[in-house]
Design a protein around this nucleic acid. Structure first.
Lengths: 342, 342
DNA sequence: CTGAAAGCGCTTACAG
DNA sequence: CTGAAAGCGCTTACAG
């Protein structure tokens, strides 16, 4: 079953490829091709089940209608939901998306960008890992359309979209304070990326504003690729029996930390929120049916994904328009459940 | 910054494109091109940051090194983990993957297949929705490499890979029986696909083998796009105060059902497993930190994803080899936690 | 050992 | 209004 091409249709009707191409691209009227011929072309195309070869189109036009997506890990529901939204919004405009998981590894993301570049994608949506500044700068220099999501590099001027992490953490911490918690800990991850840094900054500022001294021993920074046992150790140090200055609340900067943390807290036989109150970033299903449903900082993932695609496509479609970089910072909302205390 | 092409390199060195192409494709030795020239070509390619245009290659060779993946929803962790594995295994062999979420909607999957076809993907990995038999048959007729995952159509002979759902449900039900449960319910979804059907069959067979009559009122088949309230109603009918013949255990055929179900059970003030024992298919994080950690039927997602890619690439690479359809049925394992009783 | 040439399937100035 | 022709960037018989 050989695929049918433009010239198959042209031969079939005894007309030129040019004409067929015009008609099939809806330019029949523009070139004043007779309705009758238009109809014939369309009919034959249908009859022969013509499927345009997008790759040939791409080679000719320089546009592939494909975008490259680089995130940390598609198996992580945070990125799964984001990815889904991006796929959907892209499809609305006829774009496909190639998914790449970088595992927060700059070497991987470098290879993935190169691969996507070779695939001639029209643009990129990237959640850049630590130490990938040079890669992003190279894209910017190359005048390639791209949008960063979830994090960005303050020193690189470009489109980016995310949430107000400082504000989110500030509010979450305040919420715990307002419930009488005084020894609030923060468990985070050493990503060295603005988003995580801002979370801890917001947490600290809330304490400062409440005249509570910051204790560095209450801030646990785990390696990115932390295991269960790393979290377990941090939990033990914060709320275990022999902990020196026990924490009475914990702000988890990611849901992976939170889920592991809750497991460890339960394993120690402690009650949430009685023994320790909890607030976590992100809102996985797990938190709804948890031992004690978890109060969370919920990010508008749908809006992030959708906006990212819109900004990207806008730049792709107007390559010569003067670029006005969009820096979108969305608000989060605090969903209050039982884990943070009554 | 114009991209550098083969002929740029050729001109730069005063040789032919042919030669450059040979060298860059590692065929230098095969064509006995002098080491010296090889080195020069490689150096210039590096210097000019040559990135082969895969799309041009694809047009010429008919191979794009791209595979199309159609699953129900990438935001669902089940498919997220599967997708991740597929992406990773494909990347190992130099293949990229275009992700498509069909939402179990055959109209969407039809469009997605057409889109992927136009993109000239080399093969497909598909988790086909109900009523998409004709689409799969068309692929088979077209002699296009593809592998089905998670479900398949018994009447269509093709590569497919999944788990032994009958066996899994049989064992899960037996496990509940062995813990003294007698009135075991099954909440499932009306997907009308072998995988779901086999689950309920396995459940029934376990009851039959234990000489327990099957009560249709204990089998709740919810619409695929069920809402929280649909699950809540089913739960109420099974274990609510005014339930006529209360169930003492529930087998959930999907984790989405299970998570919603547990929420509803808690809302009714019932205890798991005391009031009702639970086993669920699939193993999301949620089940680990649940009110009562959930006993689950765990599917070997990594192996499914990896094997699917291997079978697919094997067929892609040997298009003329006589196809011997592989029907891989993997075993699940039952991870026993508290929800199913002591 | 190396190069000139054809061609993959399109689009699009250009000419009439 | 319609067609012949060039060309996107590659690969690969073919010729020498």
């Amino acid at each position: 079953m050989k695929k049918t091409s433009l010239s198959d249709i042209a031969k079939h009707l005894g007309v030129s490829k040019t004409l067929v191409s015009f008609v099939l691209n809806g330019k029949g009227k523009e070139f004043r091709i007779s309705e009758e011929i238009c109809k014939k072309v369309l009919d034959v195309a249908k009859e022969l089940n013509y499927q345009p070869n997008r790759i040939a189109q791409g080679l000719r036009t320089g546009r592939t209608n494909t975008i490259g997506l680089i995130i940390a890990d598609i198996a992580n529901p945070f990125f799964g939901i984001l990815g889904r939204e991006i796929e959907q919004e892209a499809a609305r405009f006829g774009y496909r998306v190639i998914f790449c998981s970088s595992d927060e590894n700059p070497e991987k993301s470098r290879q993935q960008i190169a691969m996507l570049q070779q695939s001639q994608v029209d643009g990129y949506i990237i959640s850049p890992p630590k130490n990938s500044e040079d890669q992003i700068k190279a894209l910017a220099r190359g005048n390639v359309p791209f949008v960063l999501i979830d994090r960005y590099f303050p020193e690189i001027e470009c489109h980016h979209i995310g949430v107000d992490n400082f504000d989110a953490a500030y509010n979450a911490t305040n919420h715990l304070l307002s419930h009488g918690r005084k020894r609030i800990a923060n468990i985070t991850v050493n990503l060295d990326l603005v988003n995580m840094i801002q979370r801890t900054k917001g947490y600290k500022q809330a304490l400062i504003d409440a005249n509570i001294p910051i204790e560095e021993s209450l801030i646990k920074v785990l390696p990115f690729s932390h295991e269960n046992k790393d979290v377990a150790r941090a939990i033990k140090e914060l709320v275990g029996k022999s902990a020196q200055h026990k924490a009475d609340a914990i702000l988890f900067s990611t849901s992976k930390l939170g889920i592991n943390g809750i497991e460890s807290i339960s394993a120690l036989g402690l009650k949430i929120p009685d023994d320790v109150a909890i607030v976590s970033f992100d809102n996985p299903d797990a938190y709804k049916i948890c031992i004690s449903p978890v109060t969370v900082v919920n990010q508008p993932l749908k809006e992030i994904g959708k906006t990212a695609v819109q900004i990207l496509l806008n730049q792709i479609k107007h390559p010569d328009a003067p670029v006005k970089f969009q820096e979108v910072i969305l608000k989060t909302d605090l969903i209050i459940r039982k884990s943070s205390g009554a």
